[in-house]
Structures are given as structure tokens and as C-alpha cells.
């Protein structure tokens, strides 16, 4: 891992009126590191993810990101044009429901190619070749390139969404329950795929999940959230095998052992 952190989150708090979404969350993320955020629903995981990824403005706090030129920039002081450019080139966002992250009415190839066209690629043959390569990498048959995602199964849609996000070679990917709504064997394949891609590409990722198995398989570090606050933060195997907080112990012990 490199010497400098990629993302630095400082004291992020989000209030919805009187209610608190997440409170005073601070952490650093390093290049190539996968961080899992776990907790039960309503614990503020998704709020936190949305704040960090600038999809939502936090009430207080800063999020700094290391740009490709090496400078550290506060995301909320950037212009909107620059922030949106960052979001579609250097970042990826994988939604729980692929319909939110894909254009359901255009073909798989165009879905993957959209980001390339957005950054100025104007050569049809090259775009299509890149799209074909990426479909192969996420195990979608090449002959499905002109089909719309509507004709895809849930697992295929999720893999397509991942390809669409990774095509511009991002350095940071946000994932919101990437395996939610998929059956167990499809989940396993998807996790295997994501783990491979993250390793190959050296991606940093923040994965929000309520599934501790996902956290164990994918992540290096994990944060446990409860009522909007981070109650435990450490190496994934340490947190899962030796949970300190009573709530984390409860979470770990509630996994069904088959």
C-alpha cells in the first residue's frame, strides 16, 4: 500500500431535521483498501455512503480525496462540474438495485460505453471493443452485447453494472449492498468476481452491507455502525473473530451456522 491515504473523512454528520442519519464519522481509506461498513438497517450506513460519495451534502464534516495529480482536495469545495467529472471517471457507484445504476432501455454495450463517450471517446469500433472486453471480464456472453438489461437476470444486471462502473479505470468504488436481492449461489459468484477485480485492478472500495459474510470475503477493514455512530473499527478478521463491543458480539453471534 502506498504512503498516502486516498480518502480522508473527517467528522461527517448528517441530520434529517431532528433525527440523526450518521454522527461524527471519521476514517481514512488507503489505495487498494476495501472497507466494509456493516450494521443493521437504519444504522446510517447508506447515509454515510451517500455523504462520502457526494450524492448528499453532510450537515457538517469534510471529505478529502487525493486527485490523480497527488493533491488532496475537499470534495465539497469543488465545483459541481469537476465533482461530477470525478464521479464518472475516477469513481464508481454500484447500487443495490441495478435498475438505479443502469440505463434499462439501452443495450448492454451502450451501458458499458456510456462513460467512455462521456469522457470524449468518439470511435465506435474502439468503444464496442472495450465493451466486449468488459462483458467478458464480468462473465456476460459476448452475444448479449446488444440486448437491453431488461432481458438480463438479476445477477447479470449486477455484473453489468459493475462493468459499467469499472470501464474508465476508477480508483475508488462505492458499493451499496451489491449482493442484496440475489440468491446465494449467484451471490457467491458475484463476490468471487468482485474480489478478483478488486485485486487485479488495485481498487479501493467502500462496501456497505448488512451481510457479515460479504464483509469477511471482500474487505480488509470494517466499521460497525449502530444508531448513526461507528462503534467498532478494525481489521475485518479481528472484528469478526474477536468482537469487543457487545453489539458487534450480538451481530456476529446472530449469523446462522448451517
Amino acid at each position: 500500500m502506498s504512503e498516502q491515504s486516498l480518502l480522508c473523512v473527517g467528522g461527517v454528520t448528517k441530520c434529517y431535521g431532528d433525527r440523526i442519519g450518521c454522527r461524527d464519522v471519521s476514517f481514512e481509506l488507503w489505495p487498494g483498501e476495501v472497507l466494509a461498513v456493516v450494521g443493521e438497517s437504519g444504522s446510517g450506513k447508506t447515509t454515510l455512503l451517500n455523504c462520502i460519495s457526494t450524492r448528499m451534502m453532510p450537515t457538517t464534516g469534510t471529505v478529502e480525496y487525493r486527485m490523480r495529480d497527488g493533491s488532496m482536495r475537499n470534495l465539497f469545495e469543488m465545483g459541481e462540474a469537476e465533482r461530477r467529472f470525478l464521479m464518472r471517471t475516477d469513481w464508481g457507484f454500484v447500487h443495490q438495485d441495478p435498475a438505479d445504476g443502469l440505463r434499462m432501455t439501452v443495450s448492454a454495450g451502450a451501458n458499458v460505453g456510456e462513460r467512455l463517450m462521456a469522457v470524449g471517446d468518439r470511435h465506435y469500433g474502439r468503444i464496442r471493443q472495450t465493451a466486449t472486453d468488459w462483458l467478458g471480464r464480468v462473465e456476460i456472453d459476448e452475444d448479449r452485447i446488444d440486448d437491453q438489461p431488461r432481458a438480463f437476470s438479476g445477477g447479470m444486471r449486477q455484473r453489468l453494472q459493475i462493468a459499467r462502473n469499472l470501464v474508465t479505470g476508477p480508483r475508488l468504488v462505492f458499493m451499496d449492498e451489491p449482493t442484496g436481492g440475489l440468491d446465494v449461489s449467484v451471490q457467491a459468484r458475484l463476490l468471487d468476481l468482485v474480489r478478483g477485480l478488486v485485486n487485479d485492478l488495485g481498487l479501493a472500495a467502500i462496501v456497505v452491507t448488512h451481510d457479515l459474510a460479504v464483509a469477511r470475503l471482500l474487505s480488509h477493514h470494517m466499521m460497525v455502525m449502530k444508531d448513526g455512530q461507528v462503534i467498532e473499527h478494525g481489521l475485518t478478521d479481528r472484528v469478526l473473530d474477536d468482537p469487543h463491543e457487545p453489539y458487534t458480539q450480538l451481530l456476529v453471534s446472530s449469523i446462522l451456522q448451517v
Binding site: A81, R84, V106, S107, A110, G113, E114, R115, R128
Partner: peptide, 22 residues
């Protein structure tokens, strides 16, 4: 409107891409 303001016109080429693909 935001796309016009920020000159984000990649989507227009998605339409042309679809045309060629089909």
C-alpha cells in the same frame, strides 16, 4: 438542464451508438 450547463453530452452519443449497434 444540468447536463447542458455542465456540457455533459456523452449521453447523446449513447443514442448514436444504439443506432449503429442495431
Amino acid at each position: 438542464r444540468k447536463m447542458h450547463a455542465l456540457e455533459e453530452y456523452g449521453l447523446m452519443h449513447v443514442k448514436l451508438y444504439e443506432d449503429i449497434a442495431r
